[in-house]
């Protein structure tokens, strides 16, 4: 029986120390030596805790039996609900899948705790002969895969950025319209007050005339007309006389 081991090596746990140098040094530290010591080497057997989460050396993340490669399901059919469980079972090795093994003091076996954030990790598969305990074959280390930097929600910038054009249009035009209306209202008010003042004068004039007319109306109608006519004729006579004098 040949179990296969997925080994994980964490590099650059400090997010600032990424780059070629630490990766290269780790390569020479683990893989090349393993290659030089022919394929009779022992597999990586250190645990997550011993290597400080892979910072000091690669650690063994998971082990599983060699899958039967003859009738593997098609990975493209993973969308099919009836086949999904089987496909995931066959293909999926999830690094960092066990959230509880670190908390359990009695835990025995391969602990596969969650990976640290903002860290580059490299992975490889090692094929181990369980009866002899030697490595039979192994893949190269993968390219570094970087976990995300996670940030608190308070880091989200809430500045809405530029105001939308519609908001500017609405605000500016409506402010202007209100201004126009107030000016128009003030103008209308002033104009109507002014015209009301002049019409008041007319009203007074009319009332004076009527007051003059009232006492005359109290008497008999005909004599008053007669007197008015007489006065008019007298006035005319005066005018005529003055013209004559000229």
């Amino acid at each position: 029986m040949l179990p296969e081991v997925a080994a994980v090596h964490a590099e650059g746990a400090d997010p600032n120390t990424n780059g070629d140098f630490p990766l290269g040094s780790c390569l020479s530290g683990s893989v090349r030596q393993a290659v030089v010591q022919d394929n009779r080497s022992f597999p990586i057997n250190s645990t997550f805790q011993e290597t400080a989460g892979g910072q000091r050396a690669p650690y063994k993340a998971a082990s599983f039996l060699l899958p039967q490669c003859a009738d593997l399901p098609d990975l493209n059919e993973a969308g099919d609900v009836s086949k999904a469980a089987e496909i995931l079972q066959a293909y999926l090795v999830r690094v960092g899948d066990d959230g509880y093994c670190l908390l359990d003091p009695n835990f025995k076996g391969t602990c596969n705790p969650p990976l640290t954030r903002a860290t580059a990790y490299r992975f490889k598969y090692v094929l181990v002969n369980t009866s002899s305990g030697f490595v039979e074959d192994q893949t190269l280390w993968s390219q570094p895969i970087r976990t995300n930097q996670i940030s608190p929600p308070s880091d989200i910038d809430l500045w809405p950025g530029r105001r939308s054009g519609a908001m500017i249009v609405i605000t500016s035009i409506l402010s202007t319209l209100v201004f126009f209306l107030l000016v128009g209202f003030a103008a209308a008010a002033i104009f109507s007050f002014a015209s009301m003042g002049s019409s008041d004068l007319e009203m007074q004039h009319e009332s004076q005339i009527s007051q003059e007319a009232v006492p005359k109306a109290q008497g008999a109608q005909e004599p008053s007309y007669a007197s008015v006519n007489r006065r008019q004729s007298l006035d005319r006579a005066e005018v005529y006389t003055s013209k004559l004098q000229d």
Partner: peptide, 11 residues
Amino acid sequence: SNPALITKQML
């Protein structure tokens, strides 16, 4: 105007 506010309050 952008999803920032809604994202933040959701989180």
